[in-house]
Amino acid sequence: MTQYYGHFAAVYDRLMEDMPYAEWLGFARSAWNKYGMPETIVDLGCGTGSLSIPLSRSGFHVYGIDLSSDMLTVARSKWDETPAQAVRPRAGSIRWLQQDMREWHLQEPVDTVISFCDCLNYLTEEADVEAAFRATFRGLKDGGTFLFDVHPPKQFVRYAEEQPFVLDERDVAYIWTCDFEESKHLIEHHLTIFAKDEGTRFSRFEEMHIQRAYDPEWLRAALQRAGFSKVDSYADFELEPASAQSERLFFVAVK
């Protein structure tokens, strides 16, 4: 896992503004209504805090954990700039921590861990996925839940078939191509990004992100090996079974 985001953090929210954050939050709420409502939450791979912050606003006690210091800097800035009286109707809290998801830890266990926006796909070795599952199991209270989503292998095939992707806006643009290694379900995303500075100048920088898709049954077995007593799977933001057309798989694992 080599992605640290760097310059990408500065334009991440602009490029991701159409991502379905409300649907991730909606799925989490539906799952918690079914499996138990938490008070303490770890947002594992929190990025710029687009899920951590609204969860804290809703009254949850949140730990936003990410490997990238640049992403956490943006997250802290977003949180600090939010008027407390406008967004904190209940006594929630948030704490930002720079840690590796394969070995994250807190002093006290939490009620639930979420890891959305295909964070687990960025772990490209099976041993790393299993390490993240074990760390999460250790970090949960008995009866706690682990909610995450991943892209299935077929979604990476779709990316490879449909690329290149192009964005051309007034303040930012990119060219996004993919190299797919089907035998290992590995995909390399190559992005050339042009971001507008103050004034009329644009900066250009390159990003490469590598992801791996895993067989859903292997993920289920790995969760069970980590110690989870119950593992349920869903798809596409609904508490419904996956189909061949599903673009995102969701797992709920119970300690």
Score class of each variant (00 low, 15 high):
4 Y>L: 11
7 H>R: 15
8 F>T: 01
9 A>P: 08
17 E>G: 05
19 M>I: 14
21 Y>R: 01
21 Y>H: 05
22 A>N: 09
22 A>Q: 12
27 F>S: 03
28 A>S: 09
30 S>Q: 13
31 A>E: 03
31 A>P: 08
34 K>R: 11
35 Y>K: 10
37 M>D: 12
39 E>N: 12
41 I>L: 09
41 I>T: 07
42 V>G: 03
43 D>S: 02
43 D>Q: 09
43 D>Y: 00
45 G>I: 04
46 C>N: 09
46 C>E: 09
46 C>P: 01
47 G>R: 05
48 T>E: 02
48 T>L: 04
50 S>M: 08
54 P>K: 02
57 R>Y: 10
57 R>I: 09
60 F>W: 15
71 M>F: 01
72 L>A: 06
74 V>E: 08
79 W>A: 14
80 D>T: 09
81 E>V: 01
81 E>P: 10
81 E>S: 11
82 T>C: 13
82 T>L: 14
84 A>R: 14
88 R>Y: 14
91 A>I: 14
92 G>M: 07
95 R>N: 10
96 W>M: 01
97 L>Y: 11
97 L>A: 13
102 R>L: 01
104 W>Y: 10
104 W>D: 00
108 E>K: 09
115 S>V: 12
123 L>T: 05
124 T>C: 00
130 E>C: 07
136 T>H: 04
138 R>K: 13
139 G>W: 02
141 K>W: 04
145 T>L: 08
147 L>C: 11
148 F>E: 08
156 F>S: 11
157 V>S: 12
158 R>T: 15
159 Y>G: 08
160 A>E: 11
160 A>Q: 10
161 E>A: 08
164 P>T: 10
172 V>D: 11
172 V>R: 11
173 A>R: 05
185 H>Q: 13
192 T>V: 13
196 K>A: 05
197 D>F: 03
197 D>K: 05
204 R>F: 14
207 E>C: 12
211 Q>F: 05
214 Y>V: 05
214 Y>S: 02
214 Y>H: 00
217 E>C: 03
218 W>K: 12
219 L>I: 12
220 R>V: 13
221 A>F: 02
222 A>K: 06
222 A>E: 06
222 A>M: 06
226 A>N: 03
227 G>E: 13
229 S>I: 11
233 S>H: 08
239 L>C: 06
240 E>L: 15
241 P>D: 01
243 S>M: 07
244 A>C: 06
245 Q>R: 15
246 S>N: 10
246 S>I: 14
249 L>R: 10
250 F>P: 04
252 V>M: 15
